[in-house]
């Protein structure tokens, strides 16, 4: 009898099973629901309903705007931090980096609850009472708080890779600090910016826990939408999910995420 051969391919089986049951089949189910009506007949009705409903379209635009604001603020905060840390010769810079990344390891719901209580406390003060109804402001603050480490890390790792001699060469050739930044540092850190942006922009479109808890449930983003539809209308919910998927796909292509093989997405310490 032939002994069962244990090859490297065998090791792929668990993941293949996972892939089939948790990625491929659910995708098919979403596709199926998105293009069927309540009687399970093939139909474009969900598609037409979605794109003829101004509230749904405005929610998408609204989500994109909130994500954009979050992303830009994250980038503005993270870039100098990453640059200073990457270029400093401090032996203890690992500790400083840890301080920025540490919140990532504390339970997400706990963190958001904490920041909500913090805002509640602040809004007790008369001068800050406007905070109580500043729902968008609070949502964005929560998102930035939540996603900042995902911006810092890829930026930091990209900047670490820039050889010191390039800065020296730039100065040697007569460039001052500003010129060196715009002509050397910035272009060479673009891959880090790209992966930081995708890691912040996309999740913040769907993270409705933050908008629910900090926006008094008055800020509705696309993720919240999907959640609500799956309570009543699976067909519409699937269609919204599909639209979101397409948005993600298109924006990833635009940011060149599928191009480079050595991208730093998902880098860790």
């Amino acid at each position: 009898m032939k002994a069962p051969r244990f090859t490297r391919k065998t090791l792929c089986i668990p993941y293949a099973v996972f892939l089939i049951f948790f990625v491929i089949i659910p995708m098919c189910v979403i596709l199926f629901y998105a293009f069927t009506d309540k009687e399970m007949h093939f139909s474009f009705s969900n598609f037409l309903r979605f794109f003829s409903d101004p509230t749904k379209l405005s929610t998408i635009v609204y989500s994109i705007v909130i994500s954009l604001i979050t992303t830009v603020i994250c980038l503005l905060i993270a870039y100098p931090v990453a640059l200073i840390l990457a270029r400093s010769k401090l032996k203890k810079k690992f500790v400083i980096l840890m301080l920025f990344v540490l919140p990532m390891w504390i339970n997400f719901v706990l963190r958001i609850n904490a920041i909500r209580e913090f805002f509640n406390l602040l809004s007790q003060a008369e001068a800050l009472s406007w905070l109580e109804n500043a729902n968008i402001f609070k949502t964005v603050v929560g998102m930035v708080y939540d996603f900042l480490p995902f911006m810092i890390l890829p930026l930091y790792t990209t900047m670490l890779k820039i050889d010191d001699s390039l800065y020296e060469a730039s100065a040697d050739l007569g460039a001052n600090a500003v010129t060196t930044f715009f002509r050397i540092t910035l272009p060479l850190s673009v891959p880090g910016i790209m992966s930081g942006v995708t890691m912040v922009f996309l999740p913040s479109m769907t993270n409705y826990v933050v908008s629910d808890m900090l926006g008094n449930a008055k800020v509705t983003i696309i993720g919240k939408f999907i959640y609500e539809y799956f309570g009543s209308d699976w067909h519409m919910g699937s269609m919204v999910a599909l639209v979101l998927l397409i948005i993600v796909f298109v924006s990833t292509i635009l940011s060149g995420g599928f191009k480079s093989e050595e991208n730093v997405r998902g880098t860790n310490l």
Partner: peptide, 20 residues
């Protein structure tokens, strides 16, 4: 005087060419 103010240029050990 900082390097960018000196009329001196360097050929670096590992060239330090700008990769982009």
């Amino acid at each position: 005087l900082p390097p960018n103010k000196r009329p001196i240029n360097t050929v670096f050990q590992r060239y330090a060419l700008f990769p982009h």
